[in-house]
Design a protein around this nucleic acid. Sequence first.
DNA 1: CAGTGGTCTAGACCACCCA
DNA 2: GGGTGGTCTAGACCACTGT
Lengths: 232, 232
Amino acid sequence: MNEAYYLRLTDRLRELLREPEASEEGRLPAERVLAERFQTTRGTLRQALAQLEAEGIIHRSNRRGWFVSPPRLVYDPTRDAGFNDYVRAQGRRPRTEVLKVETRPHLPAAEALELPAPTLFYHIRRRRYVDDRAVLAESLWVVSDRVPGLLQERFDHSLWGLLRDRWHINLAHRSIRMFSEALGSCDARELGVMPGTAGLGVRRAIFDAERRPVEFDEEHWLHDALCIAVDI
Amino acid sequence: MNEAYYLRLTDRLRELLREPEASEEGRLPAERVLAERFQTTRGTLRQALAQLEAEGIIHRSNRRGWFVSPPRLVYDPTRDAGFNDYVRAQGRRPRTEVLKVETRPHLPAAEALELPAPTLFYHIRRRRYVDDRAVLAESLWVVSDRVPGLLQERFDHSLWGLLRDRWHINLAHRSIRMFSEALGSCDARELGVMPGTAGLGVRRAIFDAERRPVEFDEEHWLHDALCIAVDI
DNA sequence: CAGTGGTCTAGACCACCCA
DNA sequence: GGGTGGTCTAGACCACTGT
């Protein structure tokens, strides 16, 4: 049964995509066109496309069509290099949008930082792009007592840089969790994909040199957009 | 369109699964049964099941049926605690099978360790279980010059422990890569799942205190089986 | 052998994007 | 308004698993 038609289709499409220009500007032909070209139904063809999507070779955008995926971003969650810096260092173009700024309690952040539940946080919600593709939706939860006046700042650059330069907070201890997930409807909407799209979650609890809690953040990446690197 | 029937189905199934005993011994009723119970077709029902699978809530085994997934294993790839140790530490039962042992060159390992392509490695291929579920297929590539006589050993326990205790090799520097992937046909077969199943790949290049290359390994996990943890 | 999931067909209608 | 992908139906046959 390893000869299922959709698997052979997957192979043929994979080859097709290796030669560029087979798909104009990285966009694949319409499903109905491909289905006819390969003499099958849309259903079977979509199985093959989903396979390539799981491999991270192509992805879909809204209802607009299928596109070949760019190379993955290499990302080290243990370092405090800013997003903008390492994206540019890899020859890509970063962009950040701030979606929301507010002050409120947040149970998961409190638990991760071992603080009482009613603790107030500055919550910053951002969407980040690589080469104009939205790849990351993230929420930062900063312990409000630690950084008075934070909300007067701009958040389209590195928050960690801000904490270090303006409040002289040294982000010494980090507890990081990473796991594959299906993007929830909120994250999915913000990234312009279907809810349930495969994603990669990263959660960080961050403490200063005296082990006092500073910040908690949740990142939701498109699964094909990154490769996590840690060097020890 | 957030009211797609299969998404509401997903919610209802999620609730159903929260109460145990809804599914006997963690096994879900047959697709045809569920489809009739929810008054839809198998196709739509399977969409809902696939959604829950992506979330890591349920998984399928061969052609045997759908099962609720156990909690994820928490795993720190930067530490050299053995698999058996940390699985047991989390109250689970580990098991290891050695699938293959051989000596041969391997280009990816050579590149990752910055060695010439013809370098010979001892290759150990293992399958590892948590509570009798095969969750990990891995290949270890040890630089053969560094560990004469390695192939006389048993490989169902920690290899790193062996290197430390018998060859006094200190695994000082590690370069780790993690990424979501679709399991290839070989890994999938060994884990008893369909090729293309969502997985999580981990690759490590390991050097000793003098930065001499020691070992390269490739791990392929079921995506819902683990949560990666790194503490710094 | 019966029952399961895996694959595949040939349609249909809808929501949404873009020109 | 025409074309896209997203959803859904109602079947069919096959490969495999368990007994």
